[in-house]
Design a protein around this nucleic acid. Structure first.
Lengths: 363, 363
DNA sequence: TTGAAAGCGCTAACAA
DNA sequence: TTGTTAGCGCTTTCAA
């Protein structure tokens, strides 16, 4: 039924070993023979059986990608970048989404990656020490995005410095009452993004001698709804903030919605800065910190491929930058202040500034 | 080094065949033996080699998923739904993104799915007749989303009726000059989404005796930038529309941006309705047609699994519905008209209406 | 540079 | 219900 290596060998008049060598491009085959083999293979429309070659060689030519959410913007971008690099390098991508605790538990109990992949890419997954140990036990190169751990490849951004930049932008505009919407306390040891961003916020505030008022650090669960709820809470404080740093654009956009529903104007009443530069950020004119998502996926994929090629483990940080748009401006009380920060590049949105908005009055 | 089926057999005091049967849950094994085998396997931390069992059995327990864009919202949602169902059914997911012509060409030339998967899921990929033929030649069940073809599973929506609903909504509000932003002419025979939505628009217009003015059908490439460009063109017509039906939320949001940049108000100057109910639609308060993306992924996955179980090919349409938000209202000239449509359920956004906006004046 | 042959680890007939 | 055994289709020594 299906044509196998023997058929090709017969047609080409060589042994199966030679067919195998020729088709994999090994050097110890004469050009003449290789041509004959390739011609025979083409004529028979032969494709080698991956199961058979995996069994015989022990290599799967497959990379496993594990991600918590496949449907969210950031993960989609990272996945797109990683998949493209792997596909173009001839690797298959085996995908595992772990959207909830049950899925995580099941995954680490059955370890479906065992004997199935040559390398694993972990996308921003909060890992416990034990889970990381289990992944290590797979005995294949590990790559991670936003997860720092010894002896595994990783790419990421400087969350702390980026959060400082965001906060400094608000401070430099003259704000003094600046709140933060972030993620809750993370239990996972190796997932430090929310903590780092929080620390960056705190550092910037401390350096400017500004207090973090009670109730100014809220959990927005990294969702728009969470951001909206957090903003509502902030607005009910005795001294509501004049500016908010949201740890993600989704939360920032949720916060903007809360303001709109309250009849308040962003940025005139409250300035908001987000984080990510989600595709929708430009559409809602959101000032934010841009992080290159797809590029991080590409880099992480290249790193594990390099490890597979025998190169040493690498760690890479990609740069972020402040993207100025229309949701931040000086507070009503203050005069404009120079806005500058050494650690990242400030830049106007290439699309150009949008016309300033009038505050909408609530009904 | 790695423990194999023989080790387990020895420890359990049975033959390898029995181990194989016991571990796969085949019926012809006594409970006592099965327990002994499972205990031995657990003690040795044994996991069977997928390559070996695939080679021996011919089954891969893997489903290939092919999608044009992994990073876009709709595909992320569908992928999340499909992956979850497949994972929970014990199937591996092999992922292929085909973002550009080169990737498509390469994919269909090398056919990396051959001998690698038990079924294939195609997500909204414009397929030529020849490409579809090649997929069929894989000899495995095929499932598709938004791609109609004989004898393959498919889930989708009624694009034509949904587009009519969208257009009728604008008509019922009293609009007469209604334009459409869609996709260009599709070359692919089996990818009829843009054409169906266009036909729905045309039908609704014709039934209401409204003309489709010259220049009222534009290509927005299904991107925000394309939508913005199309809107700019519409605004430069001798008789600009008072309402626009965009075939996707991304294009709708781009069109909204164009209006904002021109100092025009949505919906007071121009009403806009989108399509999809993208997560951002509620955040920018966009009236739209909701289609359940994740659910379509789940259904398609279930369909191919059913085919794998010997059931016949199925076709399923999932319902869409009009979601009323703040970007549509009667045109300036007209009095309000009753808005009703029998084919779908009209509903207020559960989050409730937002306060009406004042038109912003351009500077 | 090529060929012969022994696996790779499992499944599935067939036999018991 | 269980065991025996012959493959599944390739890769990789080892010899030539």
């Amino acid at each position: 039924m299906t044509v196998d290596i023997d058929d090709v060998a017969k047609l080409a008049g060589v042994s199966t070993a030679t067919v195998s060598r020729a088709m994999r491009g090994l050097p110890n085959v004469s050009e003449k023979t290789r041509r004959r083999v390739m011609a025979a293979a083409a004529e028979l429309d032969y494709v080698s059986s991956p199961s058979a070659s995996r069994l015989a060689s022990g290599h799967t030519h497959t990379v496993g990608i594990v991600a918590p959410y496949l449907g969210r913007w950031f993960f989609g971008q990272v996945l797109a970048g990683a998949e493209r690099v792997l596909r173009e390098s001839g690797y298959d991508v085996l995908l595992f989404g772990l959207p909830d605790d049950a899925a995580v538990a099941d995954f680490f109990e059955r370890m479906p990656l065992r004997r199935r992949v040559d390398a694993v890419l972990v996308l921003t997954l909060p890992l416990t020490v034990e889970q990381l140990r289990q992944l290590r036990q797979l005995g294949v190169p590990l790559g991670a995005i936003g997860v720092q751990a010894p002896n595994i490849c990783m790419v990421g951004i400087d969350d702390l410095a980026s959060a400082r930049t965001a906060t400094n932008h608000l401070i430099n505009l003259g704000h003094r009452r600046i709140a933060m919407i972030g993620g809750g306390d993370s239990i996972a040891t190796h997932f430090i993004t929310p903590d780092d961003r929080r620390d960056g916020y705190r550092q910037a505030m401390a350096e400017a001698d500004l207090p973090v008022l009670p109730g100014y650090e809220l959990d927005g669960s990294y969702t728009a709804d969470g951001g909206e709820a957090a903003m509502v809470e902030l607005l009910s404080l005795p001294h509501p903030p004049t500016a908010v740093f949201a740890q993600s654009d989704e939360m920032a956009i949720g916060a903007m919605r809360a303001l709109r529903r309250c009849g308040l104007s962003c940025p005139v009443d409250v300035s908001i800065i987000g984080f990510d530069d989600h595709e929708m950020a430009s559409l809602v004119d959101l000032t934010t910190i841009r992080q290159p998502a797809e590029q991080q996926g590409e880099l992480a994929a290249k790193q594990v491929l390099a490890c597979l090629g025998g190169e040493p483990v690498r760690h890479e940080l990609v740069p972020t930058r402040l993207v100025l748009r229309g949701t931040t401006c000086p507070p009503r009380s203050a005069a404009g202040v120079d806005d500058a920060d050494g650690s990242t590049t400030d830049s106007r949105d290439p699309a150009g500034p949008t016309p300033p908005r009038r505050p909408t009055t609530g009904d």
